[in-house]
């Protein structure tokens, strides 16, 4: 067995999703290689070589990969697939975009969003917004998998001493090109790996009111998230969405503010260690999963909470 983790990076560091995929790869067994496609990505290759548990880092450094277009990255992965029994990536917008294309080109199934490895070809994954857990066995010779980051601890970024090898670019598929991006910038920790997440829903009433949550998040060193309703209403950008079809988070502390707790939202946060709900409706379903609930008006409670945190215990 040999596992290839298709790595994701920002030019400087590996994404947390990739580090979690490395952990899943180690559970599968066999050697672990990490593929990095990028332009001028030598620093990331150096970083990846230090990740504990990684044996080889394959680097395809080419302007073609300055932006990871699915058609080109899939082509590259397929060109290297011969040497591997398993191909893994994080189940984030990068892995979800690229890996099914890889699987189809190899004529094999993909197992999406695994939460546990029960054998080299047996995995547990959520279905129906996490209302059921399915154990599946892959029957193809090669196995393509995307890994849910919250289910696997990220591999340690120090301790490894992998070999770095250069691999050739696989050519431009000539099907798509990158135009640009409007990325949300934030000084706060990244939503999917933050220790604390404060999320707001429709109850926030406006984008301006999210400042209340930002203040609270800053006090807790956390990230800010949202329900679909808050994103659809335009209060916050799309990348704030937590849920079945948004981001999956499992922080130490999740604070849901003005969020009713629809199953699609719970799907994205119910594995958090401690859940706090602030809602004026005592019947709101969010209270059924909250460790600590407080019934009342968020516009009064959130500033009060922020202030209470200023005082030492």
């Amino acid at each position: 067995m040999a596992v290839l983790v298709v790595g994701e990076h920002d030019g400087g560091a590996l994404k947390a999703a990739t580090l979690s995929a490395v952990t899943a790869a180690q559970k599968i067994g066999g050697g672990v290689s990490v593929l990095l496609a990028g332009s001028g990505c030598a620093p990331v290759a150096e970083a990846a070589a230090k990740v504990a548990g990684v044996d080889r880092v394959l680097v395809a450094d080419d302007p073609l990969y300055a932006n990871p277009l699915a058609e080109n990255v899939a082509k590259l992965v397929v060109s290297l697939a011969g040497g591997f029994s398993h191909l893994l990536a994080g189940a984030d917008s990068f892995g979800k975009n690229v890996m099914p294309r890889v699987a189809a080109l190899l004529d094999v199934a993909q197992v999406s969003d695994i939460m546990a490895v029960e054998g080299p070809k047996v995995f547990v994954r959520p279905i129906y917004a996490g209302n059921a857990m399915q154990t599946v066995e892959a029957t193809d010779e090669k196995v393509v998998v995307t890994v849910r980051g919250t289910a696997f601890e990220p591999a340690a970024v120090e301790g490894g001493a992998a070999k770095i090898e250069t691999v050739p670019a696989a050519g431009d598929a000539g099907l798509s090109s990158y135009v640009g991006a409007a990325l949300s910038r934030s000084e706060r920790p990244e939503l999917t790996s933050a220790r604390v997440v404060v999320s707001g829903g429709r109850g926030m009433q406006s984008g301006e009111n999210f400042h209340l949550l930002e203040k609270l998040a800053d006090k807790l060193g956390g990230a800010v998230g949202a329900s679909r309703a808050a994103v659809d209403a335009g209060y916050v950008p799309n990348d704030y969405q937590v849920g079945q079809t948004g981001k999956i988070v499992a922080p130490e502390l999740y604070v849901a503010v003005g969020i009713s707790g629809a199953i699609q939202h719970l799907a994205g946060m119910k594995d958090s260690k401690v859940i706090v709900a602030i809602n004026k409706d005592e019947e709101a379903p969010i209270f059924q999963v909250a460790d600590y609930g407080i019934v009342g008006d968020l516009f009064q409670l959130v500033p009060e909470l922020t202030q209470a945190l200023e005082k030492p215990s």
Binding site: D92, S177, Y178, V179, G180, A181, A182, L183, S184, D239
Partner: peptide, 8 residues
């Protein structure tokens, strides 16, 4: 995408 919006 995870970081916001991307146009291709």
């Amino acid at each position: 995408v995870d970081g916001g919006l991307e146009t291709i």
